[in-house]
Amino acid sequence: MTTPSQTVGPFFALGMPCPDGVPDGVWLRGRVLDGAGDPVPDALVESWQADPPAFSRGATDDAGHWAVRVPPPQRYVDLSVFARGLLRRVVTRLYLPGVPDDEVLAGLDPARRATLVATAMPDGYALDIHLQGPHETVFFAV
């Protein structure tokens, strides 16, 4: 039996420092929003990609904004979201816009597919994460 998960609570920044990221990388950023559409100011977003292997994480600010700077991803990165009020992490993906659908994207309800596809920005990509609500992000069971 695995050790059960527990929430990171609001004070995770003490023990989970956020690295600076790759100096010449691209920014992945967005907001984390709750079911009332309000920003989640105490969330942590971790990104992981296999090609090239790169880990990063960013805490949200008072307006719910997170940002990580990573090597340009191939097609997507995996995101883990932790927060006060989340008893375990939730996992989603940020897909780059304009890449052909893989099996995961193609298998989704078209209306929900959009919750995973980022918007191109001058210095990277943006994607909001909706924990609940009419635009609830697709979260994955891994």
Binding site: A36, W48, Q49, V77, R84, G85, L86, L131, E136, F140
Partner: peptide
């Protein structure tokens, strides 16, 4: 704190890949 933060829709199974 779970009330407005816990996702409500069932998670989508993700076959593990390289990532």
């Amino acid at each position: 704190s779970t009330a407005l933060r816990a996702p409500t829709l069932p998670p989508v199974p993700l076959p593990p890949g390289r990532t």
